[in-house]
Amino acid sequence: MISARLFRRTKELESQVDKFFDQLSEAAVIYRLAVRGYLRAGVSEEFTARLEHVCAKETEADSLRRQIEHALYTNLLIPDSRGDVLGLIETADEILSLFKSSLWAFEVETPEIHKDLNAGYRRLTNMVVKSVDELAAGCRVFFRSPHLVSSYNAKVTLYEKEADKISYALKKQIFSSESGLAEKIHLREFVDHIDAIADQAEDVADRLTIYAVKRQS
C-alpha cells in the first residue's frame, strides 16, 4: 500500500516534469512563429494570438514549477537531487519569461524593422530557438540518462555561439544603415532581447552539466 502511494506520487511528479519541459519546447516554437509573423505583418491578429499563447505557456509552466516544488518538499521525494532539480526548473522557467517579455516588447514598442534586416532577425530567432530546443531535450535526458547530457549541452553552446555571431553581424548592419541613432539603438535592443534567450539557455546548460556529473558520481 505504501509503495502504491509512493509510485502514484512518483508517476505524478514524472508527468509534471515532462509537462514542464513540453511547455518550454512548445513556447520556443510559438515564439519563432510570432517573431516571423511580426517581421511579415507587424502587430497583427496572428501575432497577438501567438503572444497570448506564449503567455499561457509561461503561466502553465509557472503552475507546474510550483506543483513540482510542492511535491518535492511535502512528499520528501528525490532528497539528494531535489535542490538540483529545482535549480534546473527555476532557471529554465526564466527562459519562458524571456520569451514573453521579448514578445511584449515587440507589441508595445513596435520597432520598425527594415526588410533588409528581416533575414538577420529571422536567422537569429531560429538559432535561439534551436538552442532552447536542444536544452529542453537535454533536460529531459538528464532525468533518465545523465551520461548523455553532454552531447545536448555541446549543441546548446554551439547554437549560442552562432547566435552571438549573427547578432554581432546584425548590429553592424543596423549601425551601418541610414537610420537615425534612436532607431538604431531601438533595433539593437531587440537584437539583445532575442540573443539574451540563447545566453540564458547556455547558463541553464552549464548548470545541467554540473548536475549530470554529480548524478553520475
Partner: peptide, 17 residues
C-alpha cells in the same frame, strides 16, 4: 543504470524500497 534509463524520480522510489 546506463542501460535501463529509469527516470530519476522512479529510480528514487526504487532506491527507497
Amino acid at each position: 543504470a546506463k542501460r535501463l534509463s529509469v527516470h530519476m524520480v522512479f529510480a528514487d522510489a526504487y532506491k527507497r524500497i
